[in-house]
């Protein structure tokens, strides 16, 4: 079992980690870097609870090997708020009551943030499409979709 030494940026921090080949990015974040905000819901790329951004793109971290992240820039839910100020998607999901059990929330927020980065004015269908890989069993999604709509507006007002 070969160990690979990798360096990468996670939430703006420089990190060095020794990882075995088969370790996923999800495992590395949770078990090596103690960033447990990213959740393991299925480990098969189906539920989206483990979604993080790698080089700006939302991705299932259970479907990425840690070793593939050499030099990558990773953002997890813990990296969304800046200096204690919530990201507009975080604030909006609170405002709209889009959080219940909270287990899908980290992945949902990352998918939403990645969407607004690539498409600051998404249509309702754009939002549905961006979040279709994030399963939620509590909310019924409506409040989450509304929250992303609000976040887009708020972001536009800020810029």
């Amino acid at each position: 079992m070969a160990l690979h030494h990798i360096t990468l940026t996670v939430n703006g921090e420089f990190e060095q980690v020794d990882v075995p080949s088969q370790m996923t990015l999800l495992q590395m974040l949770r078990d090596k870097l103690a960033l447990t905000g990213t959740k393991n819901g299925c480990n098969a790329g189906e539920c989206g609870a483990c979604t993080v951004m790698v080089d700006g793109e939302a991705v299932n971290s259970c479907m990425v090997l840690a070793v593939e992240c050499q030099g990558a820039n990773v953002v997890t839910v813990e990296g969304l708020a800046k200096d204690g100020v919530l990201d507009p998607v975080q604030q909006a999901i609170i405002n709209h009551g889009g959080v219940q059990c909270g287990f899908c929330t980290p992945g949902m927020l990352i998918s939403a943030r990645a969407l607004l980065n690539r498409n600051p004015e998404p249509s309702e269908d754009d939002i549905r499409a961006a979040l279709v890989g994030n399963l939620c069993r509590c909310t019924g999604y409506v409040r989450i979709i509304e929250a992303v709509q609000e976040a887009a507006k708020r972001q536009k007002a800020l810029n």
Partner: peptide, 12 residues
């Protein structure tokens, strides 16, 4: 391509 799985899976 758009019809495949989810956005975050299509990243891979």
């Amino acid at each position: 391509c758009c019809s495949v799985a989810s956005h975050q899976l299509r990243t891979r």
